[in-house]
Write a protein that binds this DNA or RNA. Structure first.
Lengths: 339, 339
DNA sequence: CCCCCGTATGGGAACGTTAACAAGCCGCAA
DNA sequence: TTGCGGCTTGTTAACGTTCCCATACGGGGG
């Protein structure tokens, strides 16, 4: 049976080195005012005892209250899009000596609230947040207490903080215009839950494109609330069964694009452009044209904003919009152009 | 310009409610021995001040030293495999009221060491670790101090801790046997760095299969150290240029499989089985047969082991091996069988 | 001889919380 | 009346660290 040895403290190191705890503190933190041979004795005692400083106690006492920890709250960490973002945030944090706590919300306001409360109770210095559709009033107190907040991927309603998004609306507009430019007029919209901000934006872009060609929205061709591949596949089947079926499809995320692919022939006369690039999209038959966004840039931008806030930037909240890119691969393509 | 308000403490709440800090502590922690109307007054003061308990201070003082935080250290959080694992670990932690610190090692022992040191300095209760190939002696002291450790995906050399892996060797053996069963005898091996444990295991399984059919390893057909899609594509080109080119390929991870696909025709006489399933593998041409492992199960199993250790299980270290599944999709397939 | 200054070190208090114990109050039985 | 047990509440000290100030030493200038 394993025996638990009490972790050594500065007091133990001090005793072993024949100095005071204060001197150990100075030596460990690399502060000046410790003579070389004292430092060496302390160093020796530290190695002998296997001492490691307790950073929680340190953070508690320090004047300049910093835990060097940030929280990252995303919709779903298993989603490759957020995984890339998380990795990017982690790299920025690592560069600055910060740690990252992660939490997934599943897009449930209640879980978001729980996760954030647990983070602020640990005195995180900042939060990078993919907000749910719920209210965020509970952030007011922590923010007054000095916790910085940056939203990413979507804005939080009624929360005046730095926000990093992509030009969802313009990207969608470009995608649908591409289809219109190839002569399509009956273009179906297959989207996720309409209460998600990005989905509303993409739908607006879809309407923009139709309007600029003088086409009115046909409600029969618009499907919201598709949560899975099978939802998407079912929606496609319905659309194809219509008296006037669509000749082209606009899908608003990778999951829906993939679900729809399963209902298409190889090749298929129906054209398709989807939001979100993903690996192998260029190897599918037919190859998939996409509106591509860059999760790594999203994460890095959000992290940089957050750290400048943590470093004391008190200017007005900023809103950064990153650009999407239309990658044409399907029929009418000028060749696969991937980064 | 924003003004920072000092966070209220229990003392402030106590003053506002006209009680002692100890009573506030009891009320906040839901301990018994607080009369209902006192509790109500405290509750009222808490809401009025926007008070939130400082869990770091709490953890420092508490006898039963628990930070309710674990660390997850993976190779690369952006890799979908580890992202799924991370999400699974996070869910288990969330169920138990624990938080998760994450860190990526990039498979660099130095970064692994840094990340783990930062985690243990924050007094995490446990670590779930995808170990690099480096030594792990630095874990001895924290473990004696009570930090529990579980390895996942790979074992750590010389570290006696719970370990969760999959049957890499048997899975590889089955994959290569499948190719042998279809009459192939010149089967190439395309693998990642040989200093990664899983790669050595999969190579051993490759040899097992060959040996059971009385075939000797042909060094010309074996490529190690492929780190990217382009490495894999280049290796394939070389192999095809050989005087006696392979008629089948065994690729040891998803990246290599995808890289190799780019060098194959549609269809192609060369058969292919790869390790790791991934989305759309069934939509490729030719469809890809794979050895599939379950990252969600890996993460959940590791988390459950870790939490039982944290709860005081002192029995001998366990080694859990999860099973892989051969999913046949290519030529000779009996149909796409996906979960 | 004294004074002053710079460098190295230590002592006491404090960060925000809780463990351990003590004290006050009530009612009830002896 | 006393004594006792249960309930609520408060007091003191401590967790491991660092801030603030005090002290000791040594040397140079008067």
């Amino acid at each position: 049976m394993r025996r638990l040895v009490k972790r050594p403290t500065m007091k133990d190191v001090a005793r072993a080195a024949g100095v005071s705890p204060m001197t150990v503190s100075r030596a460990v933190s690399g502060e000046p005012g410790v003579s070389p041979d004292t430092a060496a004795r302390v160093e020796q005692a530290i190695r002998q005892l296997g001492y490691q400083r307790n950073d929680n106690a340190r953070n508690l006492r320090q004047k300049n209250l910093r835990t060097s920890t940030i929280g990252l709250v995303v919709d779903d960490l298993a989603n490759p899009f957020y995984a890339l973002m998380a990795r990017s945030v982690e790299d920025e944090a690592h560069r600055r000596g910060f740690l990252v706590l992660v939490g997934s919300t599943n897009d449930e306001p209640r879980r978001e609230r729980e996760v954030i409360a647990a983070f602020t109770a640990r005195q995180v210095d900042g939060l990078i947040l993919v907000p749910t559709n719920g209210g965020h009033g509970f952030l007011k107190q922590p923010m007054e207490g000095g916790t910085c907040v940056v939203c990413v991927d979507r804005p939080a309603k009624g929360l005046a903080v730095d926000t990093v998004t992509v030009d969802n609306r313009a990207g969608a507009e470009r995608a649908v215009s591409h289809l219109l430019g190839h002569g399509h007029t009956r273009i179906a919209y297959l989207g996720d839950r309409f209460d998600i901000w990005t989905q509303r934006e993409r739908h607006a872009g879809y309407l923009d494109a139709l309007a600029s060609h003088g086409i009115a929205e046909d409600p029969a061709l618009v499907r919201h609330g598709l949560r899975s591949q099978s939802d998407a596949a079912a929606a496609l089947a319905e659309l194809r069964a219509l008296p006037g079926p669509p000749t082209a499809l606009f899908t608003t995320n990778d999951l829906i694009s993939i679900g729809v692919m399963d209902g298409l022939g190889r090749p298929d006369p129906v054209a398709l452009v989807g939001f979100d690039d993903f690996p192998l999209a260029d190897r599918l038959s037919p190859p998939l044209s996409v509106v591509s966004q860059d999760p790594v840039a999203l994460g890095a931008t959000a992290a940089n904003l957050l750290f400048s806030r943590i470093d004391g930037d008190l200017s007005a909240p900023r809103s950064v919009v990153l650009l999407t890119r239309l990658i044409v691969r399907g029929s009418g393509s000028v060749g696969g152009v991937r980064g």
